[in-house]
Design a protein around this nucleic acid. Structure first.
Length: 841
RNA sequence: GCGGAUGUGGCGGAAUGGUAGACGCUACAGACUUAAAAUCUGUUGUCCUUUUGGGCGUGCGGGUUCGAGUCCCGCCAUCCGCACCA
């Protein structure tokens, strides 16, 4: 093939990208009458450079978007920037740059990087959450939710870093110390804004049932996060009084097994007692100090403090139980108090053994019905109720219902549904976020900023040379008059959690008027997102918040969409081999050389160790920069690599050999396009292959099984190369270019022109997906497997639809089969039409 | 601890209960070339025979079935998520 020039991506990529842009090829038409497809990948945080995970994510979405265009859809495939957040403030502190400038520079760089990959994106809808045109509308939505009673303010405990003077997220507290300052973190009470996501707990849970295009894993994670449980809330009264301690339990059936009541350190009763009990005060302090890491919790001893108080058992007021303050009871779940039934709860048992409390069996463990419970492993399986007066003999479920009914009838408790989900605290004491549009007035309280004063813009003149929230110490920004009474007042200086920004961007993509967040009718035309693609790390927070926000907007009548993402796909990571030297210092792959199974450091000749294949990370020096590989191989080879081999939900290992292979295939495809012969004649076998593969690739792309689609295209390429020139072969060549167009669009455009298919200057991006001739999908000859006792002995190629008796006869005529039967009696013969014959001896 | 996923050649992975290993990578051999690159043609699960064939093979042990990588039961390993949630 010396006479054919190579495909040169360094020229072709940019040329086609320019043409797509000039022709607005990928701008979505709101008024189109075609069926719609909204394809969305999770928008990136503008950290500065795109990484290979972005490339994989956006390539997948791009293939789907381009395929949908080719199959006659009006496609919305937008891109934007999740542009608020802490890294910009950290950069401001470290590099003395303004967060806005830093962020906008990063966006410009990353946009240029994305453009080099030739994604079919409607850039006219680009948005960045840090721009007032976006966050101003977010403020308006926030105030709508506020007006609807879905936003409130309450005192809440936060992690406070006393050096940086800021609130830290739980993830930023490491071993009880601030991740940046290293100072011990304090628990502080601050007034914080909350969104009432718990109002939607049941809806969000029930809604998961309708999301049948979501991974089960993600639905399950959300289900667990919402954490619905049902049980009894009841009061254990102080003797003789009406006051008492409210307790929530999912096991009311075990109430006769109770031996103590335990309350959280932060429980009001404990707090009150502690005011004149220094020992209890000290114990409470001790509880608060306890670590919150997984290891801490697992090894933490169950500790309690006997308050000396007793309470009456609701089912027998003469029976008094001691009240402990215990370190394993959480204030923010249920009522912050539990009754302990040691025989049937492991924590309670640990606690009871330590403090020598009674352990009474009330659920039979098989034949074990003795009220005295032995051992240190609680029995939590189903069983029959014993040692429980009138409940004896009931099942656990019967007893639960019975106790709840009794409690409700007698008025000391009621059945209750409890959720683990808490309201969403959205206050952040930071600069680089959406200002919360509220004004605090001494006289009027919290007053919403009037709509005509939105957006509340961030001030530009801020300093980051001292810790704390720059908005808080800005000399003038927070000083405003109350919109109601016009007295001096103060702006809220907290900003919104960035998860709020990402909770509605997909609506703004669908409709972006200047004067309101979105136009209802326009947004509803596109929504819900038909296919959402992103990392599984967002399985809970982002996806739950976005679902909540959409439901909240629906609740207040702003949009009639319940679930924002009809179909969700979570893609795997891109991994790469790691290397270390003898001292454990990480080495980049370019620093090492392989000789057989021995790895050496190129510079020094010292031995290197090939480590685990891990997610690309700077610290492990195994990153590959997308720009570098696009420089080297062009966009199409990189895109092809991202789609090949690994199923998209699994991790993909980057490899030099792999990308080389992709480069070779791009060239091979290019060479094929020069082989159009204008020969005549039909090659029926190739026609069949072509049409089978058209059908298969389409099915695979719709299922996001890109690795399988890629394999089928290879298969067709192999078949074309082996075929003799014919009209069929020329058609197959045109077809393979079309089929691969969503994956390698630059090459496909180039080839399309070369093939003369682009008469009139048409683009393959606008070309229709090839039609399948169903007749060609049906083989007229089939290969039938012949088994003897389930083992393959021979294969026969026969006409499709050959009658069973004839197939049987042919099978038995086979020498190999006769040899395998070896004269034995044939008990029966199973015939699966057109597939196989199994001779049973 | 709870929940979930995964386990197939040297590697990534294919396979509506019906011919296991498609397709790619690697490796090896050959062709072309002065040579290299590129390209092309083979071979590439394993063992025995080395031609015909045949045995064994989808983490392990059972089961259902004419037939199991696939379905059921019990283990093991790895990975992920959640976690003192009453």
């Amino acid at each position: 093939m010396t006479n054919v020039e190579r495909f040169n991506p360094h020229v072709a990529d940019a040329r086609w990208q320019k043409i797509w842009e000039e022709r607005s090829s990928f701008v979505a038409d709101d008024n189109s009458t075609k069926p719609r497809a909204y394809v969305l990948e999770m928008f990136p945080y503008p950290s500065g450079r795109i990484h290979i995970g972005h490339v994989r994510n956006y390539t997948m979405g791009d293939v789907l978007a381009r395929y949908k265009r080719m199959t006659g859809h009006e496609v919305l495939h937008p891109m934007g920037w999740d542009a608020f957040g802490m890294p910009a403030e950290n950069a401001a502190m470290e590099k003395k740059v303004h967060p806005g400038g830093w962020t906008r520079d990063n966006i410009a760089n990353m946009k240029a990087q994305l453009k080099r990959l030739g994604f079919a994106i409607d850039w006219t809808r680009e948005l960045a959450t840090c721009e007032p045109e976006y966050y101003g509308h977010e403020q308006a939505l926030f105030l709508k939710l506020y007006a609807a009673g879905l936003v409130y303010r309450k005192e809440s405990a936060v992690n406070w870093d006393p050096v940086d003077m800021t609130v830290l997220a739980n993830e930023q507290v490491i071993d009880g110390k601030g991740w940046r300052s290293g100072a011990p973190v304090e628990r502080r009470k601050l007034s914080q804004w909350f969104l009432k996501i718990t109002d939607f707990a049941e809806e969000l849970l029930a809604g998961l049932g309708s999301l049948d295009q979501w991974p089960d894993k993600v639905r399950l994670m959300q289900e667990n996060w919402i954490g619905k449980s049902q049980g009894l809330k009841c009061r254990f009264r102080f003797p003789g009084g009406n006051d008492g301690i409210d307790v929530f339990t999912t096991r009311p059936d075990t109430m006769f097994g109770a031996s103590f009541v335990a309350i959280a350190a932060d429980h009001p009763v404990a707090q009150k007692l502690a005011t004149n009990a220094p020992e209890l005060q000290a114990f409470i302090e001790e509880c608060r100090k306890g670590g919150t890491t997984a290891a801490d919790i697992e090894t933490a001893e169950k500790l309690g403090f006997n308050t000396g108080l007793t309470v009456e058992h609701p089912l027998d007021p003469s029976w008094h139980l001691p009240v402990y303050v215990a370190n394993f009871v959480l204030m923010d779940y249920g009522t912050g108090a539990v009754f302990g039934c040691p025989a049937h709860d492991q924590r309670d048992l640990d606690f009871a053994r330590k403090y020598h409390l009674p352990v009474t069996r009330v659920v039979a463990d098989g034949d074990l019905t003795d009220s005295n419970f032995e051992g240190n492993i609680a029995y939590t399986n189903p069983g029959v109720i014993v040692n429980s007066h009138w409940m004896n003999g009931m099942t656990v479920d019967q007893a639960k219902a019975d106790v709840i009914a009794k409690a409700e009838q007698e008025g000391w408790g009621q059945g209750q549904t409890q959720y683990r989900l808490r309201d969403w605290g959205v206050s952040r004491q930071r600069y680089w976020g959406t200002p919360i549009p509220i004004i605090h007035c001494q006289a009027c309280g919290a007053v919403p900023v009037p709509n005509d004063q939105l957006p509340v813009k961030l001030p530009e003149d801020v300093s980051f040379d001292i810790p704390g929230n720059p908005l808080d110490r800005h000399p003038t920004w927070s000083k405003v008059d109350c919109p109601k009474c016009h007295q001096e007042a103060r702006r809220e200086t907290d900003t919104l959690d960035t998860f709020v920004d990402s909770s509605w961007y997909f609506i703004r993509f669908a409709s972006q008027p200047h004067d309101k967040p979105f136009d209802r009718a326009a947004a509803e035309k596109w929504l819900p997102v038909d296919q959402y693609i992103g990392g599984v790390e967002h399985a809970i927070l982002h996806l739950l918040y976005a679902r909540f926000w959409t439901r909240a907007l629906s609740h207040i009548g702003m949009i009639d969409v319940k679930e924002p993402f009809a179909s969700l796909f979570t893609q795997g990571m891109v991994t790469h081999q790691t290397y270390q030297d003898a001292n454990g210092t990480w080495l980049s792959p370019e620093q090492v050389r392989r000789e057989g199974d021995i790895w050496t450091i190129i510079d020094s000749g010292a031995p290197a160790v090939a480590g685990r294949i891990e997610k690309m990370s700077k610290s492990k020096k195994n990153v590959v920069d997308p720009d570098d590989i696009v420089d080297q191989y062009g966009a199409d080879a990189v895109r092809w690599f991202m789609l090949s081999d690994s199923p998209p939900e699994r991790d993909l290992e980057w490899s030099e050999a792999g990308i080389e292979g992709c480069w070779r295939f791009v060239q091979r495809l290019w060479r094929l396009t020069s082989q159009v012969s204008n020969a005549e004649g039909v090659d029926k076998a190739l026609d069949r292959k072509t049409h089978q593969i058209i059908a298969g690739v389409g099915t695979d792309i719709e299922a996001l099984a890109f690795n399988k689609a890629v394999a089928k295209i290879y298969d067709l390429a192999n078949a074309i190369e082996k075929a003799a020139p014919s009209a069929s072969r020329d058609t197959a060549i045109r077809t393979i270019v079309t089929l691969s167009a969503p994956m390698v669009p630059h090459l496909a455009e180039e080839a399309w022109t070369q093939l003369g298919a682009a008469s009139g200057g048409g683009l393959i991006a606008d070309a229709p997906w090839p039609a399948v001739n169903p007749q060609l999908l049906v083989e007229d000859e089939v290969t039938i497997a012949i088994q003897v006792r389930g083992k393959l002995r021979d294969t026969l190629t026969v006409a499709k639809g050959l009658p069973q008796t004839e197939v049987e006869a042919l099978a038995l005529a086979s020498q190999k089969v006769q040899h395998a039967i070896d004269g034995a009696d044939i008990r029966k013969i199973i015939v699966v039409p057109d597939r196989l014959v199994n001779i049973v001896l």
